[in-house]
Design a protein around this nucleic acid. Structure first.
Length: 152
DNA sequence: GCCAACGTTGGC
DNA sequence: GCCAACGTTGGC
């Protein structure tokens, strides 16, 4: 069964436009165990993903991408020069994983966090729960479809 | 720039 | 194994 996800990125670091240009990217740098488990255990090829801009003006869902490669070791954890370097992740037993995502579309209008919070159908989203900091989270098909509808 | 919320670290 | 200190996230 196809799943739906939301991933956050700071547009100053990597935006939906960057993804539109590069077409695909490896989603590296996730260093949270709960998010890691989603990536490693549950993300499957073909799953649809909402691309969300955090620390942005405004913070907003801005487009859609799709999983095109399932979990493999996040090599940025092995590189001491990388800002995401983590010495406890070993090549023979990696701690951190990543997937590859492919650009699907950019919304014609960003769906801001304000609009998301104001939509009754989206009240239960992990994204708008108090104190949530997960950078990778599941969303239901209904929530996914509603955000896509708002963005088009 | 502030700060609440949360995860991680490390001393004990 | 507890928990205080610390670092990070991310909306505002």
């Amino acid at each position: 069964m196809e799943k739906h996800w939301l991933i956050k990125s700071e547009p100053d670091v990597f935006s939906i436009d960057d993804l539109a240009k590069s077409k695909t990217t490896h989603w590296d740098g996730v260093r949270n165990y709960q998010a890691r488990n989603f990536i490693r255990d549950e993300m499957k090829i073909g799953d649809k993903v909402i691309f969300y801009h955090s620390n942005a003006e405004p913070p907003a869902a801005v487009g859609i991408c799709e999983i095109v490669k399932e979990a493999y070791p996040d090599f940025s954890a092995f590189d001491p020069e990388d800002s995401h370097y983590d010495p406890k992740s070993k090549k023979d037993s990696p701690t951190w994983f990543m997937v590859d995502v492919k650009f699907v579309k950019k919304f014609s209008a960003p769906v801001s966090i304000t609009e998301i919070k104001a939509n009754k159908k989206l009240q239960k989203m992990n994204l708008v729960q108090r104190g949530n900091r997960l950078s990778v989270m599941p969303v239901t098909k209904n929530e996914f479809d509603e955000i896509v509808r708002m963005g088009n």
